[in-house]
Every structure is written in C-alpha cells, then in structure tokens.
C-alpha cells in the first residue's frame, strides 16, 4: 500500500477535524446539566425575589448551595457513566479545584459589589448576573460556538431587561435568564 503526500495531508486534516468535533461535543454534553441546574436556580430564586422580596436572601443562599451540590453530583455521575471500570468517580483533586474556582468567583463578585456599591437590588441583580454569560462567551471562543451563543443571548436579555423592564426585573431575570440557561442546556445536550 502506498500513500501519497496529498493523501497524507488529507488524512491528517480528517484526523484533526474528527478530534476537534468530539472534544467540542463532549464539552457540550458535560456542560449541559450544569446549565439546566443553574437555570432552575435563577428561575426559582428570581421568582421568589419578585413576589416575596423578604425571602430573597434565603432563596438565593439556599439556591446557590443546592446548585453547587447538584452540579457536584452531576459531575460525579457523568464521570461514572463514561468509565464504568473506574475505581472511583470522585476525584478529590478535581473537587478541590472546583471548590477553589467557586471561591474565586464569589470573591470576585463580592469585590465588584464592594467597589461599585449598587443602590438597588435590581442593579445588584444585573451586575452579578451579567458576569456569568460573559464568562460563557469567553469560554465559548475556545470550547464551541453554542456556548458563546448561549452567553450572548443571556447577556443581551439581562441588559435589555435592565433598560426596559422596571419593577418586574427579577421576574424577567427568572423567566428569561433562567429560561435561556435551561434552553441552552437542552440545546447543548442535543448536540
């Protein structure tokens, strides 16, 4: 069997395309449940904020804790599903890194609030929420255009709501912000 230089170049291109595609799809599939989980947290906590404002702190505090637990469980279940022969799906090193990433994120948001001192809960909500879709857009540049698109749509919705929606902003954030994350998660899962 002989292979020409042209055939070799074409074969290497095929190898590269196939590898890139599966890595992107794998990232989408792994990210999908986390989008759905955090979409639900946004949906419920923002709805509580809208209709029962005195329960806001409790709703967000418990929502974030439950979201983190659900995300951790989803990550463990995913790693078990792909490697049935793996001795343990829980990796303490990864767990530490995930925990530290969360701490860094919370510290960043706290600094943002401390420096900018938003005057209303609406401003604080928009400021905190807008951070995440831009993070998805940044990640999407590297990991796949669907991630970028979800971030773009969510960020546009957050800004549009901030400009045009007044007293029902929290409800908008729950329905549109949470809804776009849930829909985005389902879209990633279908890839």
């Amino acid at each position: 069997m002989t292979v020409t230089r042209e055939e070799a170049a074409k074969a290497l291109e095929e190898v590269s395309r196939a590898s890139d595609r599966i890595v992107t799809l794998k990232g989408y599939n792994q990210g999908a449940p986390h989008f759905i989980i955090w979409g639900l947290v946004w949906l419920v906590a923002n709805t509580v904020t809208q209709f029962w404002p005195d329960q806001t702190d409790w709703a967000w505090g418990s929502g974030i804790v439950m979201g983190m637990i659900a995300s951790a469980v989803a990550g463990i279940v995913q790693s078990r599903g792909v490697k049935p022969d793996a001795p343990s799906a829980f990796d303490p090193k990864t767990a530490r890194r995930v925990g530290l990433t969360w701490l860094v994120t919370l510290a960043f948001i706290s600094c943002l609030i401390f420096i900018s001192r938003p005057e209303t809960s609406r401003e604080a909500n928009a400021m905190i929420s807008i951070f995440f879709p831009f993070m998805y857009m940044g990640a999407g540049i590297w990991a796949g255009w669907r991630l970028f698109a979800i971030g773009l749509v969510t960020a546009a919705g957050i800004l549009a709501g901030f400009v045009w929606i007044g007293e029902y902003y929290a409800l908008w954030m729950g329905l549109f912000g949470g809804g776009s994350l849930i829909a985005g998660g389902l879209w990633l899962r279908s890839a």
Binding site: M1, E14, V15, A18, I22
Partner: peptide, 30 residues
C-alpha cells in the same frame, strides 16, 4: 488508513483512555 475508519479512530482517540462512546453518538458525529 481507510477514511471512515481513520475518522472513527481519531474520534475515539480524542477521548481519555477507556472512555466509551455510544454508537449513535459516533454515527452522528461522523
């Protein structure tokens, strides 16, 4: 070296060692 088999191998090789891929997913990817 056959084109489809090369793409199958490239796809599976991009996954960590021992990681499995469902037939339908592989079929859709390729």
């Amino acid at each position: 070296h056959q084109s489809m088999r090369l793409r199958i191998a490239a796809t599976l090789n991009a996954l960590p060692h021992g990681e499995q891929l469902e037939f339908n997913k592989l079929k859709a990817v390729l």
